[in-house]
Measured scan of single mutants.
Amino acid sequence: CHSECLGNCSQPDDPTKCVACRNFYLDGRCVETCPPPYYHFQDWRCVNFSFCQDLHHKCKNSRRQGCHQYVIHNNKCIPECPSGYTMNSSNLLCTPCLGPCPKVCHLLEGEKTIDSVTSAQELRGCTVINGSLIINIRGGNNLAAELEANLGLIEEISGYLKIRRSYALVSLSFFRKLRLIRGETLEIGNYSFYALDNQNLRQLWDWSKHNLTITQGKLFFHYNPKLCLSEIHKMEEVSGTKGRQERNDIALKTNGDQASCENELLKFSYIRTSFDKILLRWEPYWPPDFRDLLGFMLFYKEAPYQNVTEFDGQDACGSNSWTVVDIDPPLRSNDPKSQNHPGWLMRGLKPWTQYAIFVKTLVTFSDERRTYGAKSDIIYVQTDATNPSVPLDPISVSNSSSQIILKWKPPSDPNGNITHYLVFWERQAEDSELFELDYCLKGLKLPSRTWSPPFESEDSQKHNQSEYEDSAGECCSCPKTDSQILKELEESSFRKTFEDYLHNVVFVPRKT
């Protein structure tokens, strides 16, 4: 048989008469490798580009789960590009990614509803959504962080984005990388972005840091009482949809009607710091009717980097990364020049730590249904340095008659930039024990000054392991946590139920 035959053949030295091919099969003959313009397919066939392209389009058009959109890589027609490569849609070739590779997620039936953290986790790592997304989240724990972890990498949506009755959302900033909504599939009414009845939605994105392009379709905003109209108009300008909307697409009466839409800028007039305090004062603000001013709200939190936005980490279910302080308005003076500047002394802060701070007014709604208010920009203030805590785990070892090696770990709280350490030492008198000992005694162990690591005695271990207080009263049991108490109650309830079950099964009433 021919060298490319495997198993047997019907005619000697003829690659077209093989029972099976050793390498690849091409047009009725066995070959060692697939010549151009053919590609290896499933490690035994040679196919042309049209064959591989037909497989790709067949799966793409069917949208069946589990099928493969075949691509070409290293002269092979394979189910998908290997790690580190992405497909070129024009020629199906796998090309190296520039940075992290995109991950295209194809949605069944063309859309997916995100109504819980669990459903959001199914899209973790996706960068391109081939379909439409509907966000409908009523509640949950730590929602802002969970949504950002699972949806934060999405850069492109081919269909539309719909935010509907998501009472738990305060902001859409968890879509931190969303840059493009194509609108290839539109919501009824030709809408590519749809926001309806979101009672706590206050911000779409921080438009000073976020760009969003909507290729096709219109915007729809109705019944978002805490979303200011200025935020919607800003989205029109940034996304390129200005002029597409009709009169009733953006409701003037049901958007922002319960919001404090600040239209003035508060400026800080005085800032002073110490290692654990920050004193702030800002310019006074009074609405047209000074009785509408209820006070100020001061927001602050630790910020290692200057990239904080107002609604980071917030949701309507209680999660809030900001510390909020309510401040009463100052006494009002008739003389504008003698107006008191409101302020606040922030206490209990960490030394040498940068804080993000902003302040906003708290006002009631005027009778004319106009909203007044003022808010400052987010500023960054760093507390002063102070003395560091003591170095940890000092170790001293003498390696000769004239040297001592000293080692330690950095302090747990540096409280500033540590530039150097101060080492103090003092000579001590020799131990009298060394002169009084009889060095001729056998088995004498000389006193040693070398360091030995501390260890816990058996008594201390027994005390720590004991669940009861000892007789001397030195140790006591740790208080039980809520989960331990709940577990004990469940076990007790189970024992009672099981005992009742045994009584009912074992003891049967005697027939009379």
Score class of each variant (00 low, 15 high):
Cys105Asn: 01
His106Tyr: 11
Leu107Thr: 11
Gly110Pro: 04
Lys112Thr: 04
Thr113Phe: 03
Ile114Met: 08
Val117Phe: 13
Val117Tyr: 02
Thr118Met: 05
Arg124Tyr: 01
Cys126Thr: 01
Val128Ser: 13
Gly131Val: 00
Leu133Ser: 00
Ala149Val: 14
Leu153Trp: 14
Ile154Gln: 00
Glu155Leu: 06
Ser158Ile: 13
Ser158Val: 08
Tyr160Cys: 15
Ser166Ala: 10
Tyr167Ser: 02
Leu172Tyr: 01
Arg179Leu: 07
Leu180Ala: 11
Arg182Ile: 07
Gly183Val: 01
Glu187Leu: 09
Glu187His: 09
Ile188Ala: 09
Asn200Thr: 02
Trp205Thr: 01
Asp206Met: 06
Trp207Arg: 02
Lys209Cys: 14
Thr213Ile: 13
Gln216Ser: 10
His222Ser: 05
Tyr223Asn: 07
Leu227Phe: 02
Leu229Val: 15
Glu231Lys: 03
Glu237Val: 04
Glu237Gly: 06
Thr241Arg: 11
Lys242Ile: 09
Arg244Asp: 08
Asp249Asn: 10
Lys253Thr: 13
Ala259Trp: 08
Ala259Thr: 11
Leu266Ile: 04
Phe268Gln: 00
Ser269Val: 10
Ile271Ala: 03
Phe275Ala: 15
Lys277Gln: 15
Trp282Asp: 00
Glu283Met: 15
Glu283Phe: 07
Glu283Pro: 04
Tyr285Thr: 04
Pro287Met: 11
Arg291Thr: 14
Pro304Arg: 14
Thr309Met: 02
Ala316Ile: 01
Ala316Met: 05
Ala316Leu: 11
Cys317Tyr: 06
Val324Gly: 04
Val324Glu: 15
Arg332Thr: 12
Arg332Val: 13
Asn334Lys: 14
Asp335Val: 06
Asp335Lys: 11
His341Lys: 09
Gly343Met: 13
Leu345Trp: 15
Pro351Cys: 07
Ala356Ser: 08
Ile357Phe: 01
Val359Glu: 00
Val359Lys: 00
Lys360Tyr: 02
Asp367Tyr: 14
Thr371Lys: 07
Tyr372Arg: 13
Asp377Arg: 11
Ile378Val: 03
Ile378Arg: 03
Asp384Ala: 14
Pro388Asn: 08
Val390Asp: 04
Pro391Leu: 05
Leu392Lys: 05
Ser398Arg: 05
Ser402Leu: 11
